[in-house]
């Protein structure tokens, strides 16, 4: 795939630069705050993006190695686990959700089932003790258990 990925990336960068500049052009201030205003830095960034995007389009680099399918499946698993964790944390609380997500991650790294469960439980319990009991950093208990 000679440089195809690089061309796609370059086009995306140039496009986001144009869209970003269009968005920035709406940042109007009714009164005069300073001579530069809120648009200058966004414009600078967007011009840079368009410039480098076009450069990548015209002079793409040849190689991009993609991960194999099994690795992509494992990574997708991790993404799903992290997003589910973000959703579950306020509901089922820090201890249960962290045990679940760390166990899942252990399994993705080919840990043995029982070992992963033990490691996950010990880890979440230990972190709860450390942060909540020792450092009094508030972590969610879980709405489900409070009700």
């Amino acid at each position: 795939m000679s440089g195809r990925v690089d061309r796609v990336v370059g086009a995306m960068l140039a496009l986001s630069g144009i869209l970003g500049a269009l968005e920035a052009s709406t940042y109007d201030v009714g009164f005069m705050t300073d001579p530069v205003g809120p648009k200058a830095l966004p414009y600078l960034v967007c011009v840079t993006l368009v410039g480098v995007g076009v450069t990548a389009l015209l002079r793409p680099r040849a190689y991009v190695v993609l991960p194999d399918a099994a690795a992509l499946v494992r990574m997708t698993g991790a993404v799903v686990a992290f997003l589910a964790y973000a959703g579950a944390l306020p509901v089922i609380g820090f201890f249960v959700s962290t045990t679940l997500v760390t166990t899942a991650l252990s399994l993705l790294f080919r840990g043995p089932l029982r070992g992963s469960l033990v490691a996950g439980t010990v880890l979440s319990g230990g972190l709860w003790l450390l942060f909540v009991e020792l450092l009094s950093l508030p972590l969610p208990i879980g709405d489900l258990w409070i009700r």
Partner: peptide, 15 residues
Amino acid sequence: PRWILIPGVAALAFV
């Protein structure tokens, strides 16, 4: 082993 180390790091990152 990584299956202990990495979840530990991840959990710290979440906190």
